[in-house]
């Protein structure tokens, strides 16, 4: 039965791709989902993840085309290659979903997340917090005599690193937007 010559990508214009292996390795993938911005569409997507037991690491959604009423949902999820393929196929068949892209496998992409951190402290801690903020290119967006609110943009790993450093310096509250991502242009 070796007469089969199925190459990877042979069915590239189908809605699935032929992955070389079905390993048990858990991978992290960033998916973008273009949907009609209509009531309940986010519930439909989230319900799919909870109902079928998939993970959501991060999720962002906002309308990106006001005339066409399209929203873009960016989901960071984890799973084995088979589960990731299944998530993409399940997402694609939701009626108000126009397109699903897997930025992790479809070439280079950029990912950014924004976070706001409230850090309270006095004396040397305040100075150290400002110094680290400068190194991380975080901005001070609010300040009192005993606190700062920093705004930082970057990859989730950068935000993780920054917030870990802020913790001993008086981090009291943290808000993160979740990941927004785009494929890089061109070849």
């Amino acid at each position: 039965m070796s007469a089969l010559h199925i190459k990877q990508g042979a069915t590239s214009h189908s809605a699935y791709n032929l992955r070389p292996n079905f390993s048990d390795t858990v991978e992290t993938h960033t998916l973008t989902v273009l949907v009609d911005n209509e009531p309940g569409v986010l519930a439909r997507v989230i319900g799919l993840f909870s109902g079928r037991g998939y993970n959501i690491e991060s999720l962002t959604v906002a309308e990106v085309d006001h005339t066409g009423h399209h929203s873009r949902i960016t989901i960071v999820t984890t799973g084995t290659p088979q589960v990731i393929e299944q998530i993409k196929a399940q997402l694609s068949r939701i009626v108000p979903v126009h397109r699903v892209n897997d930025l992790t496998v479809e070439g280079p992409s950029v990912e950014r997340e924004l976070a706001l951190l409230k850090v309270e402290g006095k004396g040397e801690h305040r100075v150290e917090a400002l110094r680290l903020a400068d190194i991380f290119r975080a901005k001070v967006v609010d300040s009192t005599l005993t606190s700062f609110v920093f705004e930082i943009t970057g990859t989730p790993e950068k935000i993780d690193a920054f917030s870990e450093l802020m913790r001993p310096l008086g981090l009291v509250e943290l808000a993160r937007t979740g990941v927004a991502a785009l494929a890089r242009s061109g070849e």
């Binding site: 199925i6 069915t11 189908s14 809605a15 088979q82 299944q86």
Partner: peptide, 17 residues
């Protein structure tokens, strides 16, 4: 006709959507 049925349970060698 349903892409989510393919490779969901059993890995197949010749998927035809």
């Amino acid at each position: 006709i349903d892409p989510s049925s393919i490779n969901k349970v059993i890995r197949v060698d010749i998927p035809i959507l």
